[in-house]
Design a protein around this nucleic acid. Structure first.
Lengths: 112, 112
DNA sequence: TAATAATACCTAATTTTCTTATGTATTTAT
DNA sequence: ATAAATACATAAGAAAATTAGGTATTATTA
């Protein structure tokens, strides 16, 4: 697990990127997907995730669909066309930011 | 300039790394150095910088030396041995974080 | 089968970290 | 002379997260 301050500011980017690659995902699924893909290094906390999802929905960036699975609710989130644009911008900005930080900190990233 | 949320959490890492490479620097110098090295893409704000420098000093990570230049004060900051360890840890953590994010977001970073 | 862990959602209080605004003062450039 | 740059600092407020709590179902395991 990374120190919490590092991960700050990347939550929206992570959510939007994953939702461009998967047509719909629910909150818990997002936490597990991120945990799996990062070997547990990034774990989204529910207290941060759910309010962010709600905000993105209110902004028209995501839409929701509630599904009953057994007796349990699942709230699926899907990205809208305008959300795709924002996702793309965010990912590009983050890519640029990484390049800038590599230069600034003189990093030697080991790209698998 | 990047959206502010992106830069969050990197301030300490930037300060400590630059102070491992330069035996002493003062606050204003840090703002200019970062601005120059990033082509203006990252600009440290004084409201964030000075309180952080003070905190690092209080934690024994930095030491200070006030110098009179003309009639103007300059407060030079230098990193302590324990600060070097923390700087190293922070840079390593950030490097690892970048690798994780590249995988997670499936990025194609253009490494100049 | 009782207890625990995992799944699945949510909110509220607090903390952390940053932005924005403001202040003081000297030096350099126009 | 005036404005911009240099150089420090703090304080109010906003933003984004953490921590901690709540509800409920389903699967595991002791």
């Amino acid at each position: 697990m990374y120190s919490s301050e590092l991960i700050k500011g990347t939550l929206k980017t992570i959510i939007l990127k994953l939702l461009t690659e998967n047509e719909k995902m629910y909150g818990y699924e997002l936490t597990q997907k991120v945990k799996d893909m990062t070997g547990g290094k990034i774990q989204l906390t529910e207290g941060a995730l759910y309010p962010t999802l709600h905000a993105l929905e209110n902004q028209g960036i995501l839409t929701t669909e509630v599904v009953n699975v057994g007796n349990r609710l699942r709230k699926y989130y899907a990205i809208t066309p305008s959300g795709r644009e924002i996702a793309s911008e965010k990912v590009n900005e983050f890519t640029d930011f990484i390049a800038t930080m590599i230069t600034l900190l003189d990093l030697k990233p080991n790209l698998g």
